[in-house]
């Protein structure tokens, strides 16, 4: 690991100023991706701006049918939060399946979505639930937030402070694990809003999380597993690697979507795998 300077701001505005003042500075939240990269000398920031002391970026609340989660909230906190479990239990369950216990105790929701790892779970929830990403400067719709491999709409120095999730009528996330990393080889989040809008977000399969309109339309018409079973997915944009080629991922997307629909349709499915 290379040497760096460590700074701990108390507000998001202060953190943004520090990031803008130092070109090679990086914000660190849970550090579950950045620290390994630094140890492997793949990242060498001049400054680490530690966000853990920023109180305004923590915690969960529900207001007007919207669940808001502070960006510095740890996966384990989301997983066991009674607020989250009551509002969007599928989201709490998603958080409980990220990484391992150690990762969940360190990793944060804001860090995960700002990192936009192609195989991370949280991006699927943000996109699949139609959330809004909040920064000190603006509100960014989920559909505009994830733009590429480890790339988001965030501008230099811009921090995610909160994520606002509209509470759906029902939702479920199903992850098929890559055998080695146990990240999502393919992960699918399905939601149906109170007005009947269906969103299907897929992670792990491409450069970044994406929606699948053909599956959404089919499920809007009929929210059953059978509605998506025979829908073919175009392989062109899908990843191929030693754990699965694009054909396999394309096959898994409707399979997992059907399972997520099935899971979301079961009133007693919460907490069961």
């Amino acid at each position: 690991m290379h040497m760096f300077e460590y700074l701990q701001p108390r507000t998001a505005i202060e953190a943004e100023a520090l990031l803008l003042a130092n070109e090679e500075a990086r914000a660190i939240s849970g550090g579950m991706s950045l620290l390994p990269a630094m140890k492997l000398r793949l990242a060498a920031p001049s400054h680490l701006i530690d966000l853990s002391g920023i109180e305004e970026m923590r915690g969960t609340s529900v207001d007007d049918n919207v669940l808001t989660i502070g960006a510095m909230t740890r996966h384990a906190e989301v997983a066991r939060s009674s607020v989250v479990r009551q509002a969007i239990p599928g989201l709490a369950a998603l958080a409980s399946g990220i990484g391992d216990r150690q990762v969940r105790n360190r990793g944060t929701i804001g860090g995960s979505i700002a990192n936009s790892d192609p195989a991370a779970c949280y991006p699927a929830s943000v996109l699949g639930l139609g959330a809004t990403v909040m920064t000190p400067r603006r509100r960014i719709a989920a559909d505009d937030f994830f733009v590429g491999v480890f790339e988001t709409a965030l501008e230099p120095g811009e921090l995610v402070t909160h994520i606002a999730f509209p509470i759906p009528e029902r939702s479920a996330y199903v992850k098929f694990q890559q055998p080695a990393s146990r990240f999502a080889l393919v992960g699918v989040l399905v939601s149906r809003s109170r007005d009947g809008t269906v969103r299907v977000a897929v992670t792990g399969a491409s450069s970044h999380v994406f929606r699948v309109p053909s599956l959404e339309q089919a499920l809007a018409a009929e929210f059953t597993p059978g509605a998506v079973e025979n829908i073919a997915i175009d392989t062109e944009e899908l990843n191929s690697d030693i754990h699965g080629d694009a054909d396999y991922r394309a096959h898994l997307i409707p399979v997992l979507t059907a399972r997520a629909v099935d899971l979301a349709s079961k009133p007693d499915a919460v907490g069961k795998i």
Binding site: P89, A172, Y173, F176, Q177, A264, S265
Partner: peptide, 9 residues
């Protein structure tokens, strides 16, 4: 291998 997390009402 698959982990499912649901939300239903």
């Amino acid at each position: 291998n698959q982990v499912g997390n649901a939300h239903g009402e």
